[in-house]
Design a protein around this nucleic acid. Sequence first.
DNA 1: CATGAATGAGCATTCATTCAT
DNA 2: TATGAATGAATGCTCATTCAT
Lengths: 211, 211, 211, 211
Amino acid sequence: MGTAKVEKPQRKTRIQRANEQKILEAALEVFSQHGFRGSTIDQISEEAGMSKPNLLYYFKSKQDIHETLLSRLLDSWLAPMRALSKDGDPLEEILNYVRLKVEMSRDFPRESRLFANEIIQGAPRIKPILEGEINDLLNEKAAIIGNWMEEGKLKKVDPKHLIFSIWATTQHYADFEEQVRMVLGRGIDDPVEFENTKAFLVNMFTSMLKI
Amino acid sequence: MGTAKVEKPQRKTRIQRANEQKILEAALEVFSQHGFRGSTIDQISEEAGMSKPNLLYYFKSKQDIHETLLSRLLDSWLAPMRALSKDGDPLEEILNYVRLKVEMSRDFPRESRLFANEIIQGAPRIKPILEGEINDLLNEKAAIIGNWMEEGKLKKVDPKHLIFSIWATTQHYADFEEQVRMVLGRGIDDPVEFENTKAFLVNMFTSMLKI
Amino acid sequence: MGTAKVEKPQRKTRIQRANEQKILEAALEVFSQHGFRGSTIDQISEEAGMSKPNLLYYFKSKQDIHETLLSRLLDSWLAPMRALSKDGDPLEEILNYVRLKVEMSRDFPRESRLFANEIIQGAPRIKPILEGEINDLLNEKAAIIGNWMEEGKLKKVDPKHLIFSIWATTQHYADFEEQVRMVLGRGIDDPVEFENTKAFLVNMFTSMLKI
Amino acid sequence: MGTAKVEKPQRKTRIQRANEQKILEAALEVFSQHGFRGSTIDQISEEAGMSKPNLLYYFKSKQDIHETLLSRLLDSWLAPMRALSKDGDPLEEILNYVRLKVEMSRDFPRESRLFANEIIQGAPRIKPILEGEINDLLNEKAAIIGNWMEEGKLKKVDPKHLIFSIWATTQHYADFEEQVRMVLGRGIDDPVEFENTKAFLVNMFTSMLKI
DNA sequence: CATGAATGAGCATTCATTCAT
DNA sequence: TATGAATGAATGCTCATTCAT
C-alpha cells in the first residue's frame, strides 16, 4: 500500500515467502524436539522437503534459522502476557492469563519447548533477544499486579514469583508433555485433560489470590 | 544392602570406583549444561581430567555414561517424594515435600536440568528407566493424597495435577535458572531469594489445600 | 579488421559486447587477486554488477571466462616484445623493451598477476595457449638479439636468459607488489619509485650489454 | 636429557614428529602447486598417506598447516641473505648470494613457489610473519651494500632495487619453471641449464657492480 | 537478456569410537 | 589401567552449474 520504495526494499517473492515459511515451520518441528545442537540442517531440510543448499539460500546458517524463528515467535509467545490489562478485574485478568497460557500449551507446545530448550541450556543463543523484552514486560505486569495487591484487590504475594508459578505450571504441560503422558496416559491435547488442567490451575490461583 | 550379589565377582578396585565417580560427576556437569547431543566426550573427559579412551574403558559409550548417570541419580531424585508418608500430617507432608523440592533446586540444579533436558526432548534415551519407577511412585503418592482428601483432611483437587504443579513450580527455579536470574537479578542460590521462593510456594499450596 | 568471418553470423549486439567486457574486467580484478581456484563466480558477478546466471549466459563456465580473459590479454601482453624490431638500434631496442615492460607493470599489474598466478601453478589451464605463441615469439626475438651479438653490436650473453631476466625484473614490481610495498613503503605506482626502478633497470641492462 | 619438566613441555612422540613432518612435506607439495585456496585437506592427507581426521589431529586446521609450514621455512628461506657478510669482499659476497639463490631455485623450487603464491595474492595469510623479518633483514643488508658503494668498492646503484633484481631473476627459475621449461625445453634442474643460468646472472651482476 | 530458485558435488571440520601399545 | 594415534560417519557450509520463467 503505497509504501516508499527507497532502496531495494528487498521485496520478497511469493515463492520466497512460502519457502521461508516452510523452513521455519520445519525448523520449529525439529528444533523444538532436539534442541539447537541436536538438530541438523539435514533434518530441517528434509522436513521442509527441500535440498540443504536451497535451505541455505534462504537462511545463511543454522544459527540464522534459529534466531529468526525465535524472534518471530517471541511476539506471539508474549501476547497472552501483554493482554493482561490494569483496567480489568484483577482476579479475572490473572485467571484469564492462566487460561490463555494453558491454551497455548495445548495449541503451541512446540513453541514452548523451543524456548524451554534454549533457556534450560542457559539461553546461549538468545539471551540478548530475551533480556530486553521479557524483563520490561514482566516488570510492567508485576507492577500492575503489585498495585492491585496494595489496593487490597488481591491477596498479597510476590508478583514476580506469581508470574513464575503461572509460567511453570502452564508450560509444564507442553515442555514435559512426555512425562505428563507417561503418568496420565494422555496429554493436554486431550479435551478432558485440558479441562481438568485448566480447572485445577484456575482453582489453585484463585485460592491463593482471592480476597 | 548386604551387597554380595550373584553375577560375576566383578569386584571393583578403589581406583575404578573413584574414576567412575569422577566421570559421572563430569558428565553431570556437561550433560546438564548442553544436553545429550550438545555434549561431547571430549568435554566430559577433559572435565574429568582423563583421556578419552580411558573414559571409554569405564563406560562403553556416551550413551552408556548418560544412562548410568540418569539411573544412578533417579533414586536420590525421587527421594523427597518417597519421603511423603501416609502417616504424617497431610498438609505438613505435602508442604515438606515442597520444601525439599525447593532445596533440591538450590542444591542440585544440575541434576534437575539433566532430567529436564531429557524429558523436554521426549525422553528418547530414558523413557524405559522413568516409566516404571515414576509411574508407580506417583500413583502410590497420588493415592495417599487422594485418601487424605476423601477423608476431608485436605481440600479436594486432582492429586496428580497437584504433584505436577509441585514439580513445575519448584523445578522451575533450577531448570530455567537463567530466566529467573534475568528477571530477579539473582537465583535460588541466593539465600534471600531461596526464602522468598519457599515462602511463596508454601503459601500457594497451603491456600489451595488447607481445610 | 574486416570482420565478417565465416562461421555463424553470431552478430553480437552492443549490449552483448558491453556485458562481455564488464564480465572480463570483473574477472580480471578477481582472478588476478585470488587466482583461479580462489575466485568464485559470485565474486565476479558481483564485481560485474550482474546476476550469476546472466554471467553464465555469456560464458559457459568459470573456466571459459578464465580462458577467454587470458587469450584476449595475451596479445597486448606480448605487444612490447613484438615491438622489438631488428631494424632499430640494438641497445635502444632492448632498453625500450625494458621501459615498456616497466610501464606495463605500473599500468597493468593485474594482467601481470593474472598470468603469474597461472604460470606459478604450472599453467594447468593455459599451457596450450601459451606454448605456441610465446615460444615462437621468444625464439624470433632471441634470434634477432643473437644476431646483434654475433655482429658485435652487443656484448654476448645468452639471449633467452636475457629475456627471462627482463621479464623477471620488470614483472617483479607487479607480481610481488605487496612485498615491494612492504620494503619500500610504496609501489611502482608511485611516480618517484617508477623512475627509480626504470633507471635502475636501464642501467643494469646497459652495463651488461653495451659494447 | 635432563631438561626441566615443569608443566607438560608437550614432549613430542617419535610418531608425532614423524607425522608432522610427513604432513608438512605433503603440504609443501600441494600448497606450492595449487596455492592455499586451490589446495584441499584431502589432497594433503592423501599425499601424506594418512586419513583426513588424523591429519587434523596434528594440525587444527588447513590454515594452521599453512602457517606452520611458512614459518618453519622462513628461516632457511632467508639463510642465503643472512650469509651476506659485511666483512667479505663486496662483489664476491653479492655474487655468492646470487649463486646461493640460484641453487635454492634448483634445490627448493617448491619452497619458492609456496612463498610466491602467497605474495602474489597479497600475502593475505602471512603479511605479519613477513613484515618484521624481511624488512629488518633487507634493511640491514641494503645498508651494508650501500656502505660498500659509498666506499667506492662497488658501482653505485640503489641497493634495495639490487636486492629485488637478485630475487626476481633467481626465483624466476623456480616460480615460473613451467614457462622456462616451455621455452628452453628443460629447467633449472638440468645441470647444463643450471650452469648457464648461474653464469648469465653472475655476469649480469658483475657488469653492473664491478668497479 | 535477465534473474530467482534449486541442487549435486565438494570441502573444512567435528565427533564417537576403535586400535595399538 | 591408561593413552597416543587413527578413522568412518557425520555436519555445517560453499560453489559451479542448471532450471524455470
